[in-house]
Design a binder for these strands. Sequence first.
DNA 1: GCCGGTCCGATGACGCGTCAACCAGTTCAC
DNA 2: GTGAACTGGTTGACGCGTCATCGGACCGGC
Lengths: 133, 133
Amino acid sequence: MHERLMGRLSHLLQTESHLAAADYAVLVNLTDVPEGRQRYQDLARALEWEKSRMSHHIARMIKRGLVVREDCEEDGRGAFAVITEAGREAIAAAAPLHVQAVRSLFLDHLTAAELRTLAEISVRVVEKLDDDA
Amino acid sequence: MHERLMGRLSHLLQTESHLAAADYAVLVNLTDVPEGRQRYQDLARALEWEKSRMSHHIARMIKRGLVVREDCEEDGRGAFAVITEAGREAIAAAAPLHVQAVRSLFLDHLTAAELRTLAEISVRVVEKLDDDA
DNA sequence: GCCGGTCCGATGACGCGTCAACCAGTTCAC
DNA sequence: GTGAACTGGTTGACGCGTCATCGGACCGGC
């Protein structure tokens, strides 16, 4: 179910707003934070990505103009990703579509009780995953 | 939850038995069928893959010796994938590990009722997905 | 028979994710 | 302070999945 759901969802996002699911996740994260600036490292932690993936992905997003790179003053190694105006427009266009799709493809077909059960399962399973990491 | 679960699971499969989740799926399908032969097309339908993906993937599996390609007598366009002895050994080695991991990472942490709920949800959501395909 | 439409699979280009190696900056022990 | 260990990010190679395109084979109507 999850595979099919995500398949449909990311296909929608991709074709309707030219944003991949990964782009969307990064942009959401950047808009949630003052000035739309965040360290690569923090982004990676928030999304549970490897730093290498982050680096590659931001590089691609820079090419598309969604984001720019800034060096970090305090730490010579560090780098910030900063959302651009184009990035903000892109996510503003994509977001309503996305939540609408999540609803109509998934949430609308569950009862409140089912949703609760699902949430409980998820928390429990993820905890176990963390335990024997 | 699903992403983390599959991440862990496919990482396990990959490192412990040198089979990616996709390889595993193909091999399971081939062993389920007489003589371990199946048309590309049928495999693709069974796994919900695009024919292109099937073609690429089988090509890679052929290189690794897990499978061989055979032309189809009845239909000049068609092709069979046939599991090799090496393929059978690979999946025989991987299977117990895989089911064990699914249990210990997931099934063991659900009650029977939760599992039932999950199954119902999945069927329902996938049906809707099929409906407005 | 032949011709358009359809189907099967292959191919090449591209974006993506992982892994391993790497480099430069930082921290800490002594 | 100096050297070792660690950390933040980069790079390149590789396997994977998608898309568009293609060529060859089949099928229907005429």
